[in-house]
Nucleic acid binder design. Sequence first.
DNA 1: ACAAAATGAATGAACGTTTGTTCATTATTA
DNA 2: TAATAATGAACAAACGTTCATTCATTTTGT
Lengths: 222, 222
Amino acid sequence: MAKQTDLTKIERIREAAIRVFGRNGSANAPVAAIAREAGVSVGYLYRHYAGKEDLLNDLLEKTLEKLGDKVEELAAQRKSTEEIIRGFVRYIFDVAREQPERILYVLHLQNDLSWKIAESTTGRLKDLCGHLLTLGRSAKTVAPGITAEDLYIILFCLPLQYIGTSFRNIFRPVPLPPELPDKVADMCLTAVRNGEPASDRCGYCEEKRTNRTFISETYEEN
Amino acid sequence: MAKQTDLTKIERIREAAIRVFGRNGSANAPVAAIAREAGVSVGYLYRHYAGKEDLLNDLLEKTLEKLGDKVEELAAQRKSTEEIIRGFVRYIFDVAREQPERILYVLHLQNDLSWKIAESTTGRLKDLCGHLLTLGRSAKTVAPGITAEDLYIILFCLPLQYIGTSFRNIFRPVPLPPELPDKVADMCLTAVRNGEPASDRCGYCEEKRTNRTFISETYEEN
DNA sequence: ACAAAATGAATGAACGTTTGTTCATTATTA
DNA sequence: TAATAATGAACAAACGTTCATTCATTTTGT
């Protein structure tokens, strides 16, 4: 046969694309820059991706896969749903601290409505949120009125917004404060719990709140 | 002297820019398209704005001005801080329903880190959030651990994320459900209240919670 | 009162870049 | 040598920006 395909190249393209997209945003990220940073020719990139949008979708899918793996990893450790959610939020912040581009590129893609997310990718996203919803509801960590969309926004978009806002330097200097992940995780848990405070006892009567029904049970299901 | 400046044209440019940015995102919004939609020549646009980024900043500043006015309008009606926050969130959703571009363009600008927000604009943003923080803290609607940045993310970014996600059609069809604004407003209030539920009485002892100190008073100030 | 000159608002063709994409060519190995 | 992996110069389309030009209006000179 002929020359063998160098499989590491595709991974190099993915890594380079994440870096370039993360730095510039999807619209200001030339394919040529991605190829250069990956040490690959432009033509090679087009032999494996139908176009720029195809590359974006591949990246997003891989990222969702990783997030899904993280949830399964936490679940496999027999963690409680609360710990899974907390671990999930912390994981996002950990990645943001070590490799900001990996988070910033998602922030760009997610909020750029001018490109379409592939059906397969949105399907995976719905599955991931649906999975968390099932876990959370059965553990009563997630209130009945909360939907998969709510989880997506609270557990994923909200931390992303904190990270994005940090990099804007509007309210404080760049480095993410070390206490922020836990603070945000608490906020997320409160939100999905529909207002039940993190403490499991009422401040007055000291009654346990763990098995109580949720206040806003009037919200329709789904 | 010479021809008189047509003052309506600048306003037409602003309106057109919001529409084009809202549809395409800032990076995919040609200046030519904005000028065409405004019924104005490209050259005219450049006589009044130093460049595209200057136009973006002007738009964002005007939008923040409107949001500030809305808060002052609600405050002038002697509303409680809770009602102000609720009204603020509802206002965002109202605009999103009637003129989606007015919200979607902000979503784009806010999450596109490849362009710089002018100092004057970030200053206004900080002022607006600081104002809400002062109001909220004195009314005990906002927990002590909550910062101006938290308010920005909870009251502004969170509703924006709901609206953006809706337009992605991932979790449900397009039109914003009528009950969503109130649901999100409740969520926002819960978050800024740091988990204290909307109901003002404990589910067990029926003790009033209104004047209680907040659970997470351990958060440092600022 | 009138025409010519002066002014500056407004225009849009043209320019230089940058972009995504292609494909004729080269390099590599069976 | 035959087959195909890989290249990157070349291309067309699109972009932000410029600036020589046009045009409506006011000022000036008679």
